[in-house]
Design a protein around this nucleic acid. Structure first.
Lengths: 251, 251
DNA sequence: TGAATAGTGTCTTTCAGACAGTATTGG
DNA sequence: CCAATACTGTCTGAAAGACACTATTCA
């Protein structure tokens, strides 16, 4: 910050009087947006909301990320704001939530200089299926984006979120957060494959997952029309595991 | 954003009249801070500035990160703002610059709800030695932090920056940006070792660096009181290289 | 020649890739 | 029994860890 040293950048210019707060200049709009991922119908999907069309509304009827202005009276910090937005749209209180970055410029919102703090969240499919909010809807990820053209720079943010997710899935246990509390290893592998959009070797996958201090078997099996599969759950530690190597050295 | 859907969170509450902008509520302060790294005197160092002690100045005389308020008239976007701060303190125009994240809460700045967009920068030691600004000073990183107690939550931000840097250095070519245009492989290895704070195997290091499509030899050698070393430079592509494995599988 | 640092070669270990083979259920 | 999926084993190759060895300069 070191704001006190600022000698330029004031807007009103009416800070000649000594003893002023030094804060009488225009501030950007501050928002929080959340890219919410789930694996539904064998595809990676993102939750979007349709914007209203009231007076002065930018991008009427367009789809956008769930989010909104930071409420300095209700939100203690940025993450609390993100959790609030998430809860409003999905009802889910605490999935995996990670900050993605921030996007701010003079032009991204026609109403003026604005900056958004973007988060991305992972949740099990069942958690918000269908979503709580009537204006919310799931869209599959195609390539690195979604079909509808999004409001603001949200297309760019979704793209960054997909890239970050894909990148981290190569060497972390993040996909575990896209599954319910109990899951089998083939189910976990399937989620990896859906997110990465390429098949993985079963044997290497199992070896890696079982040798990481990540999951533990529960005393139940998933039964089907074939050999039952062992059910696992995440170990206590909620923090994701980082592997020393990526899955398929690309190429 | 989807701000139009916000029905709560207004502050002034004076938006009863239809046709209003819907933007008449209090906004958080918006700042940008930069964690500037260099390797100087065989150590990883961070550039800090000392705060003034004018009226209403929080944290007088404390050290803080270079940064300041977003100037919505001068800064086209957040990165331009970060580049401006960096230029003011170091004179360097375009080193490696990456967004680190954002920190925002009601309590981090005594003047009110504020959010900072944090960046981290890597630059060669010679570039800002000594720093341009009189109030700026280099401090070595000890562990994950610096000696002086920092203003605001800047201690936390520095810690996050060091962690991010160390983590990425394990599998990227980032340290190349901490060296001047031409460097030898032993020099590059030394920078890796300083940042990671542990020795690396020479043979494996050289194999990795040379097989990555990262550096190319120039027609000169670094001469000294011993066998001369081949000088290299980064290949055209400025983007850092990502390796498939970390250096020392931890443990 | 010797100190010092640059750079190479060789053996071992680890783990993914490939893929064949065995195990256990329901129908 | 057969189909289907869960799970294991075995061989190979790529790259790191360890470390000895050679190469080239200046003093």
């Amino acid at each position: 910050m070191t704001d006190g040293q600022e000698t330029t950048g004031r807007k009103g210019g009416k800070e000649g009087g000594s003893g002023g707060t030094g804060l009488d200049f225009a501030r950007p709009l501050a928002t929080v947006d959340v890219v919410i991922f789930a694996v539904r119908a064998d595809a990676l999907q993102v939750l979007l909301v349709q914007r209203g069309a009231g007076a002065g509304e930018p991008f009427p009827h367009a789809f956008a990320l769930p989010g909104g202005f930071v409420d300095i009276d209700r939100d203690r910090d940025l993450e609390a704001c993100a959790v609030r937005k998430l809860k409003e749209k999905t009802g889910v209180a605490s999935p995996y939530l990670e900050q993605l970055g921030s996007w701010g410029s003079a032009t991204r919102d026609p109403r003026g200089w604005s900056a958004t703090h973007a988060y991305f969240a992972l949740m099990p499919a069942a958690a918000a299926d269908p979503p709580l909010a009537a204006d919310a809807q799931w869209f599959p990820v195609h390539g690195e984006s979604v079909k509808p053209r999004l409001a603001f720079d949200h297309g760019e943010i979704v793209k960054a979120a997909v890239q970050r997710l894909r990148n981290k899935v190569e060497y972390t246990s993040l996909p575990a957060y896209l599954l319910p509390g109990e899951f089998t290893l083939p189910e976990l592998q399937r989620v990896y494959e859906i997110v990465l959009d390429r098949p993985l070797e079963k044997s290497a996958f199992r070896t890696r997952m079982l040798s990481a201090d990540l999951i533990e078997p529960v005393a139940r099996m998933r039964r089907g029309p074939n050999r039952p599969a062992q059910l696992y759950r995440l170990k206590k530690a909620k923090a994701p595991v980082y592997f020393a190597r990526t899955f398929n050295p690309p190429g």
